[in-house]
């Protein structure tokens, strides 16, 4: 009896998992298939078999003057790489400052960061936009990169990681060897933090890559637009006149690189998700 109910539940579990797997993969499968089909083929109807128009669609997207996709990719890469580098380096630095030193406002600083841990940036978007305007930074990429220096969630991850993996004895040994505090951080602490930095760099990169709300408020110059803004521009264009092959191709360009990186690093990323939420 016991064994039998287990079996039934196993079968049920597999059925649900298959449905969910289908839901997760199906839309992306159609996306990739349709990015290889010409507009005429797509309009004729649904097909699960790829076409031969991949290169043609790619050329159409690249040569469309209204959606500067090449500069979009470049801008997105600059913003995401910059944001990931700043977020991980300075979060590790902040976490180290609070982990390794005792000073008067240490606890207050920690509590403060924990309080703003999940505060959305949207609430100050108005002031941010005005401030960037006053500083002459509208239509530059700086406002999308520099705020990453203060990333509370990345800090929290780094801090938890230090608690489990950075023995203070090591830091003290470095001090006795005459290593300066800053050098200790860069040469001894950072290498130990590598796994945490790698995981958080991926998340920070993806988050910046996908970010749409703030960039859309800051950037209006076509040459500075990032990929999500180009997608939005495509959406507001007159859709009936659109080459659907081109539409699917642009979406593919925006999301497939992330999927490829994810598949390569999935083991670490999934482990990182579990660590991020649970402090064990």
């Amino acid at each position: 009896m016991e064994v039998k109910t287990s079996k039934v539940r196993t079968v049920l579990a597999y059925i649900l998992l298959l449905i969910l797997t289908f839901l997760c993969l199906f839309f992306f499968y159609i996306l990739i298939v349709n990015s290889t089909r010409s507009h005429a083929q797509i309009m004729k109807g649904f097909s699960a078999v790829p076409g031969k128009a991949f290169v043609v669609n790619l050329k159409h997207v690249i040569h469309d003057a209204n959606i500067p996709v090449l500069s979009g990719i470049k801008n997105s890469l600059i913003v995401s790489a910059g944001a990931a580098a700043l977020a991980t380096y300075f979060s590790a630095m902040t976490a180290y400052g609070l982990y390794a030193y005792s000073f008067k406002f240490r606890k207050a600083a920690f509590i403060f960061i924990m309080l703003i841990l999940v505060m959305p940036t949207q609430v100050s978007a108005l002031g941010f936009m005005r401030l960037m305007d006053n500083m002459g930074l509208l239509n530059t990429l700086w406002p999308l990169i520099l705020p990453s220096v203060a990333a509370p969630a990345v800090f929290y991850f780094m801090y938890s990681y230090m608690q489990s993996s950075l023995p203070m004895e090591l830091v003290e040994a470095a001090r006795i060897d005459g290593c300066s505090e800053f050098r200790t951080f860069n040469r001894i602490v950072l290498p130990i933090m590598k796994p945490a930095i790698a995981v958080q760099a991926i998340f920070a990169f993806v988050q910046a890559w996908n970010n749409y709300f703030i960039p859309a408020l800051i950037i209006s110059d076509n040459k500075k637009k990032t990929l999500p803004i180009l997608i939005a521009a495509l959406r507001s264009a007159d859709f009936l006149k659109f080459d659907m092959g081109k539409v699917y191709m642009l979406i593919t360009i925006a999301i497939v690189p992330i999927i490829i990186v994810y598949i390569l690093l999935s083991r670490y990323i999934v482990a990182g998700v579990a660590l991020g939420g649970v402090k064990e």
């Binding site: 797997t21 993969l25 996908n210 749409y212 990929l227 997608i231 979406i251 925006a254 999934v270």
Partner: peptide
């Protein structure tokens, strides 16, 4: 786990466009 987590990394605006 890998499959069900994947949509979380997708650009929401591109996903909506799709």
């Amino acid at each position: 786990k890998v499959v069900i987590y994947m949509p979380n990394l997708i650009m929401a605006s591109a996903f909506a466009m799709l």
